[in-house]
């Protein structure tokens, strides 16, 4: 019974991981090409990693911290606002409810070729009036990301709220609980797995963005990992793949570590017995 699960799990893991072995090889290869050769690990050097941490030109540790700060704040904000909205959509009946939901999906489908120009103009206007939300501000960038918080996440979380029987909050309300108490004390703990999943997604999406982040934060000390790394390879001639690969690997660590920590929340409701079923 167990073996066949491994027969699926092992190949799936190989498919998931083997391309990344190339990244690891590239980060250790002195000539620093991404896929220039298939004899992996023929030569090994730590020079690209050393470059990452010693090069004043690329304040990599700074970028790393910036990405974490922006990622965590965005994730927390997105989850909170998304959960609030999902609660409203799931538990209340109000005018514009269904069209509101449809609207959230629609706005996601809008082809945003020009978003970066529009966002730039908006934030440069903010800079004149209210600098903390304008260009060059980390908070400003987080707010831009939070502007997208309602879309996917609300829709996703609403589905989970819907799967929790309404009788639960109705009986609590009969016991005199307010809507806020129902939300914070009863529902949120129950949908914990999806809260964790959504915050992870939002964190990853933030870590990966280089277009808007590169637009808003121009000071090298403020920049994020994705922006910094993209600089290394965006120029067609003379790309620094080795340093890029090393940076991308280290940049992926927070997500992986975070996931290990959050796993048990995702698996919260499960007991060991179910595995054997």
């Amino acid at each position: 019974m167990r073996l066949w699960r491994h027969l699926v799990g092992v190949p799936a893991s190989v498919v998931a991981l083997f391309p990344l072995v190339f990244v690891l090889a590239a980060s250790l290869n002195p000539s620093g090409t991404l896929t220039g050769s298939n004899d992996l690990f023929a030569e090994v050097t730590w020079q690209h990693y050393a470059t990452l941490f010693t090069d004043a030109l690329h304040p990599f540790p700074r970028w790393f911290v910036n990405s974490l700060v922006i990622g965590v704040s965005t994730a927390a904000g997105s989850v909170f606002m998304g959960a609030c909205a999902a609660y409203a959509f799931s538990r209340f009946r109000f005018r514009g409810r269904s069209s509101g939901l449809v609207g959230l999906v629609f706005i996601q489908m809008f082809p945003q070729v020009l978003a970066y120009v529009a966002i730039f103009l908006l934030l440069s206007a903010f800079k004149e009036v209210f600098p903390p939300l304008g260009l060059g501000s980390t908070l400003g960038l987080i707010m831009v990301y939070l502007g997208g918080a309602l879309g996917v996440n609300t829709y996703l979380m609403k589905g989970f709220f819907d799967s929790i029987p309404r009788e639960l909050d109705e009986s609590a309300q009969m016991d005199g609980a307010s809507h806020a108490q129902v939300f914070f004390l009863i529902l949120l703990p129950l949908v914990r797995p999806i809260l964790v999943v959504v915050s992870l997604f939002s964190f990853v999406a933030t870590m990966n963005d280089f277009v808007i982040a590169g637009l808003v934060l121009t000071d090298p000390d403020q920049q994020t990992l994705a922006v910094g790394l993209y600089q290394l390879v965006s120029y067609q001639l003379g790309q620094s793949w080795g340093v890029f690969a090393a940076g991308a690997l280290i940049g992926a660590l927070p997500v992986l570590i975070l996931f290990q920590f959050l796993q048990r929340y995702i698996v919260g409701g499960l007991t060991s017995g179910a595995v054997k079923a």
């Binding site: 030109l57 590169g214 000071d219 090298p220 600089q231 965006s234 120029y235």
Partner: peptide
């Protein structure tokens, strides 16, 4: 003087 590093591509 603020030297801003930008990706060459954009």
């Amino acid at each position: 003087v603020k030297i801003v590093q930008k990706a060459m591509g954009n």
